[in-house]
Design a protein around this nucleic acid. Structure first.
Length: 273
DNA sequence: GTCCATGTTCTTTA
DNA sequence: CTAAAGAACATGGA
């Protein structure tokens, strides 16, 4: 569920409730959900006030009033929601922060690919690539021109660009009409510009639609997104391309399902004889 | 029982 | 060093 637009939506819906709230108590139902496991969240969090919450890549970073910070990664099935204290707890609830006034912040994650990460005073975005929404075409081109790998796998690499996952990689490649197996370093400046524009357009539209809900994703208020209704290639294998009508094809790239239009995203540039 | 899933990381192989 | 492939993590739905 959680790529940049979903994580951004969670942060935006969390912020009004969380900002300046004091953590009154915590219920830590599963200790191995925290990294490093040696951190004692009780002593770290109780009594602290939340001074800032923001997104970096797919991370939800929470700053405390004592200068320490931690982040939540939603993995595949994580949800971070604000709920009334008396609301029934969903299965796989791993951490609850009591915010007072009968409100709680709850972290639920059935598959447990996500988690809570304690950073202390060290930066929470070490070794992450730049934010795609503020990445210049030139910088993106330079980064891609060093990579001898498929553009699809480069886009999924969080060290290359932070926040893009399987859905938005496919949607952006369709939008820019680039074949997913194109070698990143063979992409020319003009194509890189198109891809840069496409990434920004797709991510912004997805944020406006409050993300894609395929199964588990909801924002901090438990509301699903609806960008999945306007996906143009993702999960549309066999359906007609919305641009040319050709059947959408699914292949495996970097061990991930990859959907594209073989007509609109040709494997190589056409020869003009 | 099978296959698949919005993510990341490690190991193996070339 | 680079990158691809495969597996691993864990759960649930079709």
């Amino acid at each position: 569920m959680p790529e940049l637009p979903e994580v951004e939506t969670v942060v935006r819906t969390l912020r009004p409730t969380l900002l300046n709230r004091r953590i009154a108590a915590i219920v830590h139902l599963r200790d191995d959900i925290v990294t490093p496991v040696s951190e004692n969240l009780e002593t770290r969090l109780i009594g602290r006030r939340i001074s800032e919450i923001h997104r970096r890549g797919k991370r939800i970073i929470i700053q405390l009033d004592d200068g320490n910070c931690w982040y939540v990664h939603l993995g595949m099935t994580g949800r971070l929601t604000i709920e009334p204290k008396d609301a029934p707890r969903r299965p796989h609830t791993h951490l609850i922060l009591d915010l007072g006034e009968s409100q709680e912040l709850r972290f639920v994650d059935p598959r447990r690919f996500g988690g809570i990460f304690w950073c202390g005073t060290s930066p929470a975005d070490e070794s992450m690539g730049p934010e795609p929404l503020s990445l210049s075409p030139r910088n993106m081109f330079d980064r891609l021109s060093r990579r001898n790998r498929s553009i699809k796998s480069a886009l999924l690499d969080q060290k290359m660009i932070a926040g893009i996952g399987n859905i938005y990689a496919d949607e952006a490649l369709f939008d820019s009409q680039i074949h997913p197996l194109t070698i990143a370093m063979k992409i020319n400046l003009e194509q890189a510009r198109r891809l840069n524009t496409a990434i920004k357009r797709v991510l912004k539209r997805a944020i406006e639609h409050r993300g894609s809900t395929l199964r588990d994703y909801v924002d901090a208020n438990g509301e699903p997104g609806d960008f999945q209704k306007v996906h143009r290639v993702y999960d549309r294998e066999g359906e007609p391309c919305l641009r040319c009508g050709t059947a959408i094809v699914r292949i495996i790239v970097a061990q991930r399902s990859t959907c594209f239009c073989p007509e609109c995203q040709p494997a190589k540039r056409r020869n003009h004889r």
